[in-house]
Amino acid sequence: MFGLIIKDFKNVFGMMIYYLILLALFLTITLLSDNIYFYIGAVVFFTISVPLSALAYDEKDNWDKFALAAGVSRNQLAVSRYLLALAVLFPLWLISFLLLLAEDLRSYENLSVVLMYGGISLLSTEIVLPLVFRIGTEKARLLYIIVILAVLVLGGLFAAWVETIGGMSVLIASLCILAVGIVGFFISMKISCSIYRHKDF
């Protein structure tokens, strides 16, 4: 499993500079505007797009054929893509908590946003990955764009809601979404493993 993750990171390494520039840009905008949405929105984007890029490379290289022939199990192949998403999400999400230490960003509302977007990142990943496994990265590209747009719309609605209501109820709602994201992650992994089990390469 570790070899698969290393391979993914080495494979997308060429795109890292592009990703890091984008990340730095969103981080700067967040700090200058005191608006957490810019950075946390980028976290969702990276959590989906890094595994998708890695998958697109794998598809082009026929990597799955090699891995299966080498003794990597179908379940490991499926699960490794989720682990890659987590490996991207966790450090970026951790940074968003660190951002909350800044005086102008420190609030229950922003904590709610960070928690909720952690859940949204997980939910987006768990919707997109099984579909990509089923129909391939090329066909799933449209779906990926729809998910990103849906996240933007929901984010806007959520921002309005936070502005209107605020306080503990929003925090509880955010925790609920995060919990749904965590539970859904395991369900999605199970679905993906089943897709992989029945797939011919």
Partner: peptide, 23 residues
């Protein structure tokens, strides 16, 4: 397997680094 089936973005040293964890 007919096609190369190895990550084309990697060089020989990278492939060695990956295969150490596969085999």
């Amino acid at each position: 397997l007919g096609e190369t089936c190895l990550p084309e973005n990697l060089n020989i040293k990278d492939i060695d680094g990956v295969m150490r964890h596969i085999f």
